[in-house]
Design a protein around this nucleic acid. Structure first.
Lengths: 185, 185
DNA sequence: GCCTTCATGTACCACATGGTACAGTCCTAC
DNA sequence: GTAGGACTGTACCATGTGGTACATGAAGGC
């Protein structure tokens, strides 16, 4: 279907714009101008600025989850992890990840429209990993700890990568982690 | 000295206020009211809102570095790491850490007054660790990778902790990491 | 053909913001 | 004592904001 409802089109464009320019100092007028419409339209379609931001958070959340779960299953956990990391560390993902961390920071401070992002920010990612590890014979509590640690490593190294841009150094640290996991787990 | 210059007093109080209320939607008037002064004074002492924010970032940066470097040296790296983590994960540190991550997120999006925070955000913390590891006989590149991984784990688990509040689960993940390090490194 | 509903643009409003002009206060040096 | 400077409060300004009233267009059902 070549046709797309105006609301959805606006939302997608908004996410792109916000990923590029940040969401902190966003104003409806600037956004509308960049999108080739008027701020009146944004209010019309989303009710208010708050309503729009809520939708943006939802969209980012969904894109994030999608990017982290759509890897082909296979027996080699280490190689799966490497594949996931290669995808996440790719520069094409950086804008969305910057936005994710900006939203995360806002959510930690209690911004109303962002707090929902925190609800499953760890568990939703951890559960699939735990299932995989348990399926491979690990104890549930050990599996949970490894999953939690893995998520922390991914997020921590992404923060590093986005700040320094030093792909090599960050890749080496990730390889060290995955290698360690393969030896011990 | 019981007496403190008005500027410094205002800055300290501002950092506390901002750690508690976030920096994203800060306005000089709200801040001044909470501090028992007028927004006129803030502009007078710091030149502009931007000037104040720069000072706040500097202060947060300095408090952060201080908290991460003031642990007693000793031969047992694992125990040093445990001590550092115990200090960082303590709830009394949470407000400052929330603020740190909020600033980090803003900096990734290029907010002018925050970008300086990114300059040494990894290296300044990594260097002392690398020195320690090298002093204990590790190869420099391996030491660098472990340091980088360690910082990522700390930051990633702090993000987890601040979002979920699940101290036990996060502690378990950290212990898994430190134990792994002790076995392998 | 007309009416209804969805969509869009223009013009406007009330409000909060960062910043400033000006006047006043307090303290210290002489 | 008083002159000068550091500090603080009041009142104001221009600007940008989110949101709204109103009029207009566009599309489809009857």
């Amino acid at each position: 279907m070549w046709y797309m409802k105006a609301r959805q089109r606006l939302l997608d464009a908004t996410v792109d714009y916000v990923a590029a320019h940040g969401i902190g100092d966003l104003s409806l007028r600037q956004l509308a101008a960049a999108l080739g419409t008027s701020h009146r339209m944004l209010v019309y379609h989303f009710g208010s600025k708050e309503g729009l931001l809520v939708e943006v958070v939802r969209a980012v959340e969904s894109r994030q989850k999608q990017a982290l779960t759509e890897f082909e299953p296979g027996p080699l956990l280490g190689d799966q992890a490497r594949q996931m990391w290669r995808r996440l560390a790719d520069p094409s993902m950086w804008p969305l990840e910057r936005l994710f961390f900006e939203l995360y920071g806002q959510a930690l401070q209690g911004r109303t429209h962002t707090t929902q992002l925190l609800d499953g920010v760890v568990d939703d990612m951890a559960q699939p990993m735990i299932d995989m590890l348990v399926a491979q014979g690990h104890e549930p509590d050990v599996a949970a700890a490894w999953a939690r640690l893995g998520i922390a490593v991914v997020r921590g190294l992404l923060l590093d990568l986005l700040a320094t841009g030093d792909r090599e150094g960050v890749d080496a640290a990730m390889e060290l982690f995955i290698g360690t996991f393969e030896k011990l787990a």
